[in-house]
Design a protein around this nucleic acid. Sequence first.
DNA 1: CGTATTATTATACGCTTGAATAATAGCTAC
DNA 2: GTAGCTATTATTCAAGCGTATAATAATACG
Lengths: 207, 207
Amino acid sequence: MNRRSFHRAAEGERRQELIEATLDCISEFGLKGATVRQIAIRAGVTAGLVRHYFESKDQMVAEAYRAVIASLTEKASKVVGDPETRLRDFIAINLTEPVADSRSISLWAAFISQVRVDPVLSEIHREGYLTFRNSLQELLADFLAAKGKPADAETCRAFAIAINGLVDGLWVEGCLAGDLFREGELVAIAMSSVEALLGTSIGNAKQ
Amino acid sequence: MNRRSFHRAAEGERRQELIEATLDCISEFGLKGATVRQIAIRAGVTAGLVRHYFESKDQMVAEAYRAVIASLTEKASKVVGDPETRLRDFIAINLTEPVADSRSISLWAAFISQVRVDPVLSEIHREGYLTFRNSLQELLADFLAAKGKPADAETCRAFAIAINGLVDGLWVEGCLAGDLFREGELVAIAMSSVEALLGTSIGNAKQ
DNA sequence: CGTATTATTATACGCTTGAATAATAGCTAC
DNA sequence: GTAGCTATTATTCAAGCGTATAATAATACG
């Protein structure tokens, strides 16, 4: 009976590896298929180690959810340049890989399905959603102001809700059935839709 | 040791009760909390009965998913009247209860998270999505034609994708955080957004 | 009224789960 | 270099899982 070979990971890396393995398992096998043992196999360790890094499996899953939210929001929140460019990039980033892919929505849906069940996840979700929508609202305020359009808070709020909904909805469609759309079709539809909503051109494609 | 009291249900009702109990459990406890025993308790029967009506738990869950899709699509597909009224009703129905509530999205998300895992659920999903979008596309074709606007297939396709995305996205937002919106706000935003997208009025509120 | 059939309950089984504990291997400091 | 610490593995445990099977109550039918 050979003992498994020891490998001590570099400082702080194991934790991240375990979270990443958790997400891999959830996206591939679903929440109920993401067992401690399966996650450990994916991370290349034994099951017992999980409890050395996390108080419980639930806590590890909650941290994994934070990582998902971060990966879904961080790229879009980092857009730079003039308002028009930022708005275009915001849309494009959310509707192309890696944000828009089947792994992302599997993870997102798995956690959303737990929002009613687990108050911890519920709070993580709400926080992430408001951050996301508020950053979009500020972006729209800048954009409308730059275009010389009315940009009062109420107007921006309504636009942010609508555009956030549009982008989210197209993101879902693209993630779930990307093969039903032509290359770049979703981004193009989103761009022209946002132009129609705002009543303003948002410029050409990036290149 | 008292034996549990017997109650024989009316012809064909038990099956429906079990499916409904399955959905209750999934929405309240998540997919992994929806165990055969919990579902049986909810349905007011004992666990063994499940296997008298279904070949396996998986089969019961798949049928429950069909029921979810049906409940999400049937109301919206039954709109009647002139194209303008139908379009308004389509939007309003999808963004108000009972379609838009937290139970619905919990169920939807639970199943979506399994689409990558289970090919059976994947097929059920795709079928439901295409049916939904196609009925919207036909509705838009009627509407645009009635308004004397160009209504070629390609135009309708793009509008259907965009409006479907918008409505779905707002549905998600409303289901997950209905308290962040004022009464009727989502419907109002959806109506004016669709008007902007189509470049046409879609009339007043119903009353 | 008696018997066959079916719906339902009750119990048992093998397996997997998350977690607890004990043993061990590698790292660090003196 | 060796003592002590901690990361890691190995093993064990009770609980819960889906399912199978047997017993029993209600119904249907002659």
